[in-house]
């Protein structure tokens, strides 16, 4: 595994997941785990998951997987990294 470690920070209504430096499929596994852990809040629409990643493939795999699981996903380019937002519209 790379040296980078994910960090998750929870504030009210938002979980921020920083996976900068990580590549697929580790990224996806980490994201899926976070979604599993916060399934109820995310499904209810009260909380959204904001992922910071600099791995381009993740901007495809994460929204696709989230979509299959019934979540809405949006990708934004933020400087040198991407921000993927997952939640319920």
């Amino acid at each position: 595994m790379t040296d980078s470690k994910e960090t998750a920070r929870e504030t009210e209504g938002e979980i921020e997941l920083d996976i900068l430096g990580q590549v697929c499929p580790a990224c996806l596994l980490v994201v899926l785990q976070t979604i599993n852990d916060h399934r109820a809040e995310l499904k209810s629409g009260k909380t959204r998951l904001v992922i910071k990643t600099d791995h381009r493939d993740s901007t495809r795999t994460i929204p696709e997987s989230a979509g299959k699981m019934g979540y809405d996903a949006a990708v934004k380019k933020k400087g040198n990294h991407y921000e993927i937002i997952i939640g319920k519209g």
């Binding site: 495809r60 795999t61 696709e64 997987s65």
Partner: peptide
């Protein structure tokens, strides 16, 4: 899930 395989070094 549509992504690649795990790399041993990962």
């Amino acid at each position: 899930m549509g992504t690649q395989s795990l790399k041993p070094e990962e």
